[in-house]
Structure formats: C-alpha cells, structure tokens
Amino acid sequence: EAHAAIDTFTKYLDIDEDFATVLVEEGFSTLEELAYVPMKELLEIEGLDEPTVEALRERAKNALATIAQ
C-alpha cells in the first residue's frame, strides 16, 4: 500500500519520491487526505511551510477533480 501511495503522489502531485515517502511515513496514503486534512496537520511535517502546503493541497484537489472526470 505504501508503494502505491508513493506512486500516486509522485504522479499526481508532481513531487519526487523522497517527498512522497515522507508524506506516507507521516501517515498520508490518499490524495483525499492531503486535499482535506486540516492544514495544521501538514504544517507539523518538518520542512513544510504554508506556501508549500497550500500548493500541495491545491494539486491534490486538482488531481481528484481530474480523476473524477
């Protein structure tokens, strides 16, 4: 499951495998979680700032909209 989540994140969020791995290690496994989890939870991840989190959430929401079509 972790590998599938990493693949999904790299494909749809335009991030590298290392960043995707950090997200999975922090407990995220779906685009929905990244799109809708409280921003505070993402900001608790070391190295993430508000602009990065906002961009990540926007990419996740856009990916979900694209997949739904």
Rank of each mutant, 00 (worst) to 15 (best):
G47A: 07
R57Y: 02
V37I: 11
E58H: 06
E25K: 15
F9W: 02
L56H: 00
L43V: 07
A60G: 01
K11L: 06
E17V: 15
L34W: 02
G47N: 07
D14N: 11
F9M: 05
L31D: 00
E50Q: 12
G47E: 04
L56A: 02
T10E: 05
G47C: 07
A20Y: 02
F9N: 01
Y12C: 05
D18M: 12
H3E: 11
E58W: 02
Q69N: 13
H3D: 10
D14Q: 08
K40W: 14
A4V: 13
A2W: 13
Y12K: 00
D16F: 05
V24G: 01
P51T: 11
D16E: 09
F9P: 01
K40D: 13
E54V: 14
T8Q: 10
L56I: 12
A2E: 12
V24C: 05
A68C: 08
D16S: 14
M39P: 08
D49Q: 05
Y36D: 10
A2T: 13
L34P: 01
A55W: 07
D49P: 04
A55V: 12
A55T: 10
N62Q: 12
G47R: 08
A2K: 15
V22I: 14
A68D: 10
L64D: 01
T66V: 13
L56R: 00
E25C: 09
E50T: 10
L23V: 02
A2Q: 15
T10W: 04
Q69L: 04
V22Q: 13
N62F: 04
F28D: 00
A65T: 09
V37S: 12
E1T: 13
A20N: 01
D16T: 14
V24W: 15
G27P: 00
A35V: 15
K61M: 09
A65D: 11
F19W: 08
E32R: 07
L48Y: 06
H3A: 13
L13N: 00
M39D: 07
F28E: 00
L34H: 00
Y36N: 15
T8S: 09
P38C: 07
L43W: 05
P51S: 13
L56D: 00
E41K: 13
H3W: 08
K11T: 08
F9D: 02
L43A: 07
E54P: 02
A68S: 11
V24T: 07
V24Y: 14
R57D: 01
A60V: 09
T10F: 04
V22H: 11
L48P: 03
A35R: 03
A55N: 11
E58Y: 02
H3S: 13
V24N: 04
E1H: 13
F28A: 01
L13F: 02
